[in-house]
Structure formats: C-alpha cells, structure tokens
Nucleic acid binder design. Structure first.
Lengths: 352, 352
DNA sequence: CTGTTAGCGCATTCAA
DNA sequence: TTGAATGCGCTAACAG
C-alpha cells in the first residue's frame, strides 16, 4: 500500500455522510483502534511506517476525534467553558475578551447557553455547571451568575456576579464607584432632580449602584426623593414601565440614571415616544457601555465597565488556576469610567 | 485520605467537589442506575413511590446528567452548535441572532471556537464539524466558513460563506448590491478618485465586493484606476499597509471603500496618524456594520449586513431542516443597506 | 511494536 | 416493577 498524500487523488472525505469513527479508520488502515489512538495522540510504541500509513488514512478520511467521546474518557479536555444565561450584548463582550485571553494558550473555548429557558430557575449556573464541568470542560467562567455558592472540583471564575461576596474567584466592575461617577456627572451638570431606574433588588450589583446613587446625593448635600426611584429590574420592559412612571410624576426628574444600558436605552425610547428631547428635556445615563449604547439616538452617555477586559482577566485567572496556582484565586475589581456621549447635558434653564 | 462519599445521611449536595454521577444517585437511593435513568427521562415502568424517592435524592444531591455522556449515548441531543473561527464582532452578532431564534424552541446553543488556532488550516470548519456533529450537536451553523463542500449526516447551514456556490443551505448578505450601494454613495457625494482596500482574494465575498466597486464605476462612466486597489485581506494589519500605500500615492484617493469594517477602522487609524481629517480630507466607508463601527471617531459610514438576522434565519432554517423539512434547504440572500454616519462627505473643493 | 481488555456516564434492551 | 447487561467512541492499562 502506498503512503500518505497519494490518496489526494480521490480525496473524498466522509463518503456518503455519517461521521467517521476511529473504528472505520482502523478498519480502513488494517490496524486496531488502539493503534490509531496512539498515532493520533503521538504516543510512543508505533513504528514510523504504520504511523505514517495511519496518518494517511486519517487525513484521507478526514477523521477528527469526537470531542464528546474523548471528553468522556479523559480527565483533561483542554476546553474552557463560558456559561451564559443568554447571548446578549454583555455576555458576548465577555466572550470577546475570553477569546483574547485564550489565544495561544492551547485551549479551546465553548460558550454554552440554555436558550432562554433560564428564568425558570434562578440557579441556572449550577445546572449548567453540573452538565459540563468535569466532562466537557476543564474549567468554567460564569457570566453574571445569580448565585455563587457553588462548589465544584474544577476551577470556576465568576464575572460580574450579581450576588454578594462569594467563595468563588471573581472579576467585577466597581459598581459603587461607577454609580458615583454617573450621578456625579449629572450633578455636575446642574441636575438636582435625578431619577433612577433601579436594577433587580435581589442582586448585589443593583444594590451597589443604588447605593452609589444615594451616596452621590449625600455628598452633594442633596436629599433623595424616594419617588424618583423606580424598579427597572435590569430589563427593557420593566424599565419602560419605570420610565413612564417617572416621567408622569407631577415634578418629573430632569435626568435619569439607569442601572444598566438596557434600561437606559428603554428610557430613551420612552422619552422619544413622549415627545421629550434628549438631552434637551431629559438627560439619560446608563451603566455598562455595551457597544450598542453608541448606536442609540442620541448616543448614550454611560458608565463603562471594561467588559472585554473582565472576560480576558477571568480566563487568565482560570488558566492560572488550572495551572495549579491556588494563589491566583482572588476577587478582582476593575475600575469603571465615565463615557460621555450625547444623552446628557445641563438641565434646560426655563421650565414651567 | 479517603474522600469517599459519606454524604449518605447528611444530604449536602456534592460534598467537597467531584461531580455527582448517576451511580452516586443510585447508590444513595438504593436502586439501580437504570431505574434512576428511567425516572430522569420519565419512562414508564417505575412505581410512583420509587420515582418520587429517587427524584428527591436527585434534587437533594443536585444531580444533573452529564451532557457529554448523554450525547455519546443518544442520537438526539437537542443542542445546536454555532461554529466560529473566533469570537469577534461579526460572529458574536450572529450569535445574538441565533439566540433570538433558539428561544422557546427547546434547543440549547453551544458556540464553539478553537481559540485562534485557526489560521493554521483553512478548513477549520471541517475539523470542528467532525468533532461535534453527530455527538455533541444535532446540527450546526458555520459562521464565515472558507469552504463549504462539507457533507455530513446532520444538517448544516452556512452564514456568510466566503466561498462560492456551495452544496450547503446558506444565509448571506448581498455583497454585490452592498458594494454598489457603498461606492454609489461615494460617487454621489462627488468623489471620482475612490480607493478600495480589498478583501482576501480567495474568498468570493471579497471578489463580489470588488466587482460591485467596478460595476459602480462603470455605471457612472468612470474608469477604474488599478493603482487605487490595495490588498487588505479583511484584517487590520494588512489593511493598514494598504491604507498607507493608497495615501502615499502621488495622486491619492479622496475616498476609500474598505471591504469590511475592520479594514475601514484601520484606514481611519492610518488617516489620523497621517494628520488627515475624516471626512474633510478623506471619506471612508466600510462593510458589515458591526456595532463597533459606531464607536470610531468619526463614526463609520458603512454598508450594513443584517448580521443578527442572518444568525436568526440560519438557526430557523436549521430548525426546520431538523424537523425534516428538506424543502427548507435554500440559499438565502438578505439585502444590504447603507448606514450613513460621519466618515463620508463631499470631497473638499480646494485641492492642490 | 501491536492488539486485547476495560471503563468513562448514561439510556436502552431484555430477563428476572 | 426492577436490575443486569450492552454499547456509544475513545484512551490507557496490560498482554502478546
């Protein structure tokens, strides 16, 4: 039998569909599966001749080892999992950062989402983790988990966990400082009646942002009007309701601080529907700086979390954890910054 | 020391790490694995009493079936794979669209990337496919594959394939029309010396965009100056070189049409480095409209492909294919549109 | 140097 | 109603 590339003439991979298995390669090459396995993994104990021959059959048949079968058998898979509730602007930014960090590490990246079946249970991250950890992936990054008391054998890092202090290594933005930044910006512009569309009350990130809002007021010697706080719950529909409520107040706010960009974008929509000019009649500021926030009309002023970097650092941390560096386990807090675009301005001097 | 499972009476979920397997559930419940399996999958032939008891143990232990083991055993996994070369702005937009389409379908979504080890081989999609198709996923969406002559048992849909007519169902933007749109915009502004930073010559999408560029010139009765075409290869570094080349020409272009946003953004950078005002001294237009294109300074005018919708339609198509609807296999071409932002303007009237 | 054996975690026969 | 046996595709012992 001839050796390698000669088969290029026929070169038809996977004739007739159905994936090629190691069995078929072995049969085709006239050797045993274990020999194929050894060749594939570069194990010693195979003669150069057979090795080359098998290699030829492998490429000719276009064989690739099944990730699943290999994962089931091996303890190490060289795959990192990123577990998200959904693929939306925030989580995909994290993904980009994760990809930056994984490059050249020899690891592969799998992002896993349950396709919106999430809201059923709060503890989605726990279920996902059980499904993939220890089999499909060597370690995992949890994006905005709602619970972090999980405890598994493999290393796990949480990005922007919405819950309080956890046992997990964590990468998060500085929510408190960020909120201060945002509200101070509004205050500095001359606003004194600043509404807030709050996040989900059970999540610490939301609590921190509200606290920043309050602290900023206190620092400015202002008393917070509790009527100016409306529940947005981090999601668009609820934020719309909140915005309508705020703007219907007898003495409506001249500016709104939204707990995240998604909410801020909703506020922008509502303002437009009500014929309000932004920032002429109403200033709006968000939180996150997802790319989409620059696409709105007007482009959104917002508090930036370095999302990509959070993804990057989370994976880097995970990688060193995987490398046995227990000292790497830590709680990283990344600074937030103000991104001034065009949805904020000084309050109009002439108001009724 | 033995960290055996003394969890018996304690009822602590996953004590001390190590994922919970069906074996452990069975042992804890005092039944066989097959019984646990039946309970888990709602098979008939289990007494209500045992069923309930086992169920209790399952929740108490926080057991979740391993995705991998289940995939290996079952033909159907109810998981859709999205295979990407890397997580970058384009592919993540597709992902968002895919998530939109998957919601409520009962399927889950797995996005898989080899972590930048791609450029080694052109046929990354073939390798990925072999690794996951038929085991981990029921069907796959290939994002910007470079080869589409793959032929596997499971259904596969390609999004924005860079190669020519393929045997695969496909969702793509209208590259030819889009390029016409972009160049016509420049022409309409009064530009007559329009440079082009081209894409990878081996990819049909790039060829089409160049053809649109030429056709637009022809339609306007203009002859294309071949010196005004420079290779950008769809990536930043090469595009920078191309931009420098173009702008160093004795009679430089007053506008540049870049084959994709990534290249256009690179042109913007180079222009800034050379002290050129955009759009005062130079107009720049891109292709894709990834969210990032709005973040540049100035915000980029570009030809939009409905990327999210492409992802959505690809998954929808895949789902109906999975449903046995062979007629769904088709080549979808989605219209492109012009997004006018601030990187294009009429050429300055006074030039040397 | 090569093939045989066993088993990863699970679902499905088939017997008991 | 239940459990023991079988095998998905692969790798790691061990035996030949």
């Amino acid at each position: 039998m001839d050796l390698d590339q000669q088969a290029g003439a026929t070169g038809l991979p996977a004739p007739g569909g159905g994936r090629v298995t190691m069995q078929q390669v072995a049969a085709e090459a006239g050797v045993s599966v274990s020999t194929v396995s050894k060749v594939l993994n570069g194990r010693y104990g195979v003669s150069p001749a057979t090795s080359e021959h098998v290699m030829g059959v492998i490429t000719r048949l276009g064989y690739e080892a099944s990730l699943v079968a290999r994962s089931l058998r091996n303890r190490r898979t060289n795959v990192i999992g990123v577990l998200v509730a959904d693929f939306e602007p925030f989580s995909t930014e994290v993904l980009k950062g994760a990809a930056d960090a994984i490059r050249g590490s020899g690891f592969e990246l799998v992002a896993y989402s349950a396709g919106g079946r999430v809201d059923e249970h709060v503890g989605w991250e726990r279920r996902y983790l059980s499904r993939v950890m220890g089999t499909l992936v060597d370690g995992a990054v949890l994006v905005t988990p709602t619970v972090t008391d999980v405890q598994y054998d493999g290393p796990v890092v949480a990005v922007d966990p919405h819950t309080g202090r956890s046992s997990l290594p964590t990468v998060a933005g500085d929510n408190l400082q960020g909120a201060r930044l945002g509200v101070d910006h509004l205050l500095g512009l001359g606003h004194t009646r600043i509404g807030m569309v709050t996040g989900r009350p059970d999540l610490v990130s939301a609590q921190l942002r509200e606290r920043g809002y309050r602290e900023a007021h206190a620092a400015a010697g202002l008393v917070v009007d509790e009527d100016l706080l409306a529940l947005g719950a981090f999601e668009a529909e609820q934020a719309r309701v909140a915005a309508h409520h705020l703007l219907s107040l007898p003495d409506p706010p001249t500016a709104v601080f939204a707990a995240n960009d998604r909410s801020a974008l909703a506020v922008l929509e509502v303002a437009a529907e009500r014929g309000l000019e932004v920032p002429g009649d109403l200033s709006v500021i968000g939180f996150d700086n997802v790319p989409e926030s620059a696409l709105s009309d007007p482009p959104l002023t917002t508090v930036e979390q370095p999302i990509r970097r959070m993804g990057h650092d989370a994976v880097a941390l995970l990688l060193s954890l995987l490398d046995g560096d227990e000292a790497a386990a830590t709680q990283l807090t990344l600074p937030t910054t103000l991104v001034t675009r065009r949805s904020t301005a000084a309050p109009s001097t002439s108001r009724d």
